[in-house]
Amino acid sequence: MKRDWDLIRTLLVEIEGLGIGQHFTPHDFAGHSSEAVTYHIHLMGQAGLIEWANHPWNGEPVVIAKSLTLAGHDLLDIIRDGDIWSTCKAQLQERLGGVSYEALMQFNLASRQQRTAALNGNAAFK
């Protein structure tokens, strides 16, 4: 199964919105099968983006998402805005041929450095 960054983004937003004591159980979601959602929750857990666990349900293990980690919040801060996300994906696809977690973090750092330099060049902020 291929990694789907749009699904990861959608899941991060959904998991962030959970209340205390709530959890997200994989199901058909945002046009994706429960198998795809399960796979992506597993990937997000491996990457340290979410707190997650396997729970037995009718004798089968079910992966659940509990909350975002600090890294998950940081990533969501980068990709939350739809326009910025579309631009970021397009630029990374063009430059690197795809999107990776490391590339997203580097893109964010470069963007922040550009904004800081622009602010420092503006006399109103000196």
Rank of each mutant, 00 (worst) to 15 (best):
residue 40 H to R: 04
residue 74 D to N: 14
residue 124 A to H: 15
residue 23 H to L: 12
residue 17 G to A: 10
residue 46 Q to A: 09
residue 28 D to G: 03
residue 3 R to I: 02
residue 51 E to N: 10
residue 53 A to W: 05
residue 121 G to M: 03
residue 1 M to Y: 01
residue 1 M to D: 06
residue 18 L to M: 05
residue 95 R to P: 08
residue 33 S to G: 15
residue 58 N to G: 11
residue 91 Q to N: 05
residue 125 F to E: 06
residue 109 L to V: 11
residue 116 T to I: 07
residue 36 A to D: 12
residue 79 I to Q: 04
residue 112 R to N: 12
residue 123 A to W: 14
residue 116 T to E: 11
residue 57 W to A: 11
residue 85 W to N: 12
residue 98 G to P: 05
residue 14 E to H: 11
residue 120 N to K: 14
residue 63 V to R: 11
residue 32 H to P: 06
residue 51 E to G: 08
residue 41 I to N: 03
residue 18 L to W: 00
residue 53 A to C: 09
residue 70 L to F: 11
residue 37 V to N: 08
residue 99 V to G: 06
residue 59 G to F: 00
residue 87 T to G: 14
residue 63 V to M: 07
residue 31 G to R: 00
residue 9 R to S: 06
residue 122 N to R: 11
residue 57 W to M: 11
residue 30 A to C: 03
residue 122 N to I: 03
residue 119 L to W: 09
residue 18 L to D: 08
residue 106 Q to T: 15
residue 46 Q to R: 13
residue 47 A to P: 02
residue 44 M to R: 03
residue 121 G to I: 02
residue 45 G to P: 09
residue 35 E to M: 08
residue 2 K to T: 12
residue 25 T to H: 13
residue 28 D to H: 10
residue 95 R to G: 07
residue 23 H to S: 15
residue 21 G to L: 07
residue 48 G to P: 08
residue 122 N to V: 05
residue 43 L to E: 12
residue 92 L to D: 08
residue 13 V to R: 12
residue 55 H to W: 06
residue 111 S to C: 07
residue 81 D to C: 07
residue 87 T to E: 14
residue 62 V to D: 07
residue 25 T to E: 15
residue 88 C to H: 07
residue 15 I to Q: 03
residue 123 A to G: 09
residue 9 R to G: 05
residue 51 E to M: 03
residue 45 G to W: 00
residue 44 M to F: 01
residue 32 H to M: 02
residue 96 L to M: 08
residue 90 A to E: 13
residue 106 Q to G: 14
residue 12 L to N: 02
residue 95 R to S: 14
residue 66 K to W: 00
residue 79 I to G: 01
residue 75 L to S: 04
residue 91 Q to I: 00
residue 98 G to F: 02
residue 69 T to S: 10
residue 65 A to R: 07
residue 29 F to N: 11
residue 34 S to I: 04
residue 40 H to I: 04
residue 105 M to A: 15
residue 66 K to Q: 13
residue 120 N to S: 11
residue 60 E to W: 09
residue 92 L to Q: 04
residue 73 H to W: 04
residue 82 G to Y: 14
residue 50 I to K: 00
residue 39 Y to L: 07
residue 69 T to D: 05
residue 72 G to Y: 05
residue 47 A to L: 05
residue 45 G to N: 09
residue 81 D to N: 15
residue 120 N to I: 04
residue 112 R to L: 11
residue 59 G to H: 05
residue 37 V to W: 01
residue 62 V to W: 01
residue 114 Q to E: 13
residue 99 V to Y: 01
residue 10 T to Y: 04
residue 96 L to D: 15
residue 79 I to K: 00
residue 103 A to H: 13
residue 96 L to C: 10
residue 28 D to E: 14
residue 68 L to E: 06
residue 36 A to Y: 02
residue 91 Q to W: 02
residue 71 A to C: 03
residue 100 S to H: 06
residue 3 R to M: 04
residue 99 V to K: 03
residue 17 G to D: 13
residue 14 E to I: 02
residue 24 F to E: 10
residue 74 D to P: 08
residue 44 M to V: 00
residue 21 G to H: 06
residue 99 V to F: 03
residue 20 I to R: 15
residue 95 R to N: 13
residue 103 A to C: 08
residue 105 M to C: 12
residue 112 R to Q: 12
residue 16 E to D: 12
residue 13 V to C: 02
residue 9 R to H: 12
residue 12 L to Y: 04
residue 93 Q to K: 11
residue 99 V to A: 00
residue 61 P to A: 01
residue 73 H to Y: 10
residue 53 A to N: 11
residue 66 K to P: 08
residue 84 I to P: 04
residue 41 I to D: 02
